[in-house]
Amino acid sequence: MNALGIIFSDMQDWSMTELASHRSVAAIPFGGRYRLIDFPLSNMVNSGMNKICIITKSNYRSLMEHVGSGKDWDLSRKKGGILIFPPYAVGENHGLFKGRLDALKRVLDYISSSKEKYVVLSDCDMICNIDYNKVISYHESKNSDITAIYTKATLEKNSSIHKILYEFDEEGRADDILVYPITQGSHNVGLNSWVMNKDFLESIIYDAIARNYKDFSCDVLAAKVHSLRIFGYEYNGFYAHIDSLQSYYDNSMELLNIEKQQSLFYAKTGPIYTKTKDSAPTKYSKDANVKNSLIASGCIIEGTVENSIVFRGVKVGKNAVIKNSIIMPHGTIGENAQLNSIVTDTYAYVNNDRVLLGYSNCPFFIKNHSIV
């Protein structure tokens, strides 16, 4: 594919303080063995892109360790491949970037030197499995300046405030764009992914430099909706937006539905790739009892796990009971402990006989390396 991929790793880190306090949003574990970065990366690779850059903001060590050279996505190449941009200052731009445009200003030289005709922009907090070839074909057919990918979804007021909503005319052209509104009902929800010609993106960045614009959604999409040809491409597959601990928990639990799990991980567009760990198979003791759960490799299960997601390297002690919970990598749940509606971060340790009870609409969170 003749397209350059650009992934923003931390566009909404401020809304996920529990999960992103010590790591990039892109490095948040999801689905038992994946990280959020795996989804946009896999989408681009499955669509034929072989030149992808990731723009980081802060706490990017675990992200760099996970992505490495990109070989697990077939991106370890002499030409093209993957490139990670840590934050750095360019000219008058100092400190951490304050929006997508501000981030793009700092990699303008890289974009300008690229030979690809198109650019695909994507955040990491939207999970889907999409074929960008179809989006680019649609982009060409509409002679569009910007093609925004969206899906139809029903929102509540508390779930709309981190989203971009679109209204389209009969031709499919955007005639109104709402950025982070408070609303409810059925809407066209943007997936924070856009396609445009590289030359057009460069002109946007130069204009942003001249006018000191920083925010792509407000200063370009919403402000110029009537002057630019912005069209929408509808996506109809599995979609999840991770913008809070509650949405992380809810969307993770959705994966226990086999139909939704298959529509994400086994879609015709291609598989979701992740870093190969070469872990040993999970060991189940004779007293282990596992129901309707995702259990990654490298675990030791000696207790009961129901309706839960257990990541790699987790140990569940004898007679421990875990229900409706998410146990991130290398956690330890002691003997006779009871957990319900709990999210434990990496290397969390729950002592023997502890009882931790959360609620499905308010899960209890245990920080990484905590001892409870």
Rank of each mutant, 00 (worst) to 15 (best):
Ile6Phe: 07
Ile6Trp: 02
Ile7Pro: 01
Gln12Ile: 15
Gln12Lys: 12
Trp14Met: 11
Thr17Leu: 10
Ala20Leu: 01
Ser24Met: 09
Ser24Thr: 03
Val25Asp: 02
Val25Gln: 15
Val25Phe: 06
Ala27Tyr: 00
Ile28Leu: 09
Ile28Arg: 03
Tyr34Asp: 05
Arg35Ile: 00
Leu36Ile: 02
Ile37Met: 07
Phe39Glu: 03
Phe39Gly: 02
Leu41Thr: 01
Met44His: 06
Asn50Val: 05
Lys51Thr: 12
Arg61His: 11
Glu65Cys: 01
His66Phe: 01
Gly68Lys: 10
Gly68Ser: 03
Lys71His: 05
Lys71Ser: 11
Gly80Asp: 12
Ile82Gln: 02
Ile84Gly: 00
Pro86Trp: 05
Pro86Gln: 05
Pro86Ala: 02
Glu92Tyr: 08
Phe97Pro: 06
Gly99Asn: 03
Arg100Phe: 03
Leu101Ser: 01
Arg106Asp: 00
Val107Cys: 04
Val107Met: 11
Asp109Thr: 14
Tyr110Met: 03
Ile111Cys: 02
Asp123Thr: 04
Asp131Gly: 07
Asp131Phe: 05
Ser137Lys: 15
Ser137Cys: 09
Glu140Asp: 09
Asn143Tyr: 02
Ala148Gly: 05
Thr151Glu: 04
Lys152Ile: 13
Thr154Lys: 10
Glu156Ala: 07
Asn158Pro: 00
Ile161Arg: 12
His162Ala: 08
Glu167His: 06
Glu167Ser: 13
Asp175Glu: 13
Asp176Arg: 13
Ile177Gln: 01
Val189Leu: 05
Ser193Gly: 10
Trp194Asn: 10
Asn197Ala: 00
Lys198Cys: 02
Phe200Gln: 08
Asp207Leu: 14
Ala208Leu: 03
Asp219Arg: 04
Lys224Ser: 13
Val225Gln: 08
His226Tyr: 06
Arg229Asn: 09
Ile230Trp: 01
Glu234Lys: 15
Tyr235Pro: 02
Asn236Glu: 08
Phe238Glu: 00
Tyr239Leu: 11
Ile242Leu: 14
Tyr248Gln: 09
Tyr248Ala: 07
Asn251Ser: 13
Leu255Ile: 05
Glu259Leu: 09
Phe265Arg: 00
Thr269Gln: 11
Gly270Pro: 08
Ile272Lys: 05
Ile272Val: 14
Thr276Cys: 08
Thr276Lys: 07
Asp278His: 15
Pro281Phe: 06
Lys283Pro: 00
Tyr284Ala: 00
Tyr284His: 13
Ser285Leu: 10
Lys286Cys: 06
Ala288Leu: 05
Val290Asp: 01
Lys291Ile: 13
Ser293Asp: 12
Ser293Met: 08
Ile295Cys: 04
Ile295Phe: 07
Gly298Lys: 06
Ile301Asp: 09
Gly303Glu: 09
Glu306Cys: 04
Val310Pro: 08
Val310Asp: 10
Phe311Tyr: 15
Phe311Ala: 13
Arg312Asn: 12
Lys315Arg: 11
Asn319His: 13
Asn319Leu: 06
Ala320Val: 03
Ala320Ile: 03
Val321Glu: 07
Ser325Asn: 05
His330Gln: 13
Gly334Arg: 07
Glu335Ala: 10
Glu335Pro: 00
Asn336Trp: 08
Leu339Trp: 07
Ile342Tyr: 02
Val343Asn: 05
Thr346Ala: 12
Tyr349Cys: 08
Val350Met: 09
Val350Asn: 08
Asn351Ile: 12
Arg354Cys: 10
Arg354His: 11
Gly358Ser: 06
Phe365Cys: 14
Ile366Tyr: 09
Asn368Cys: 06
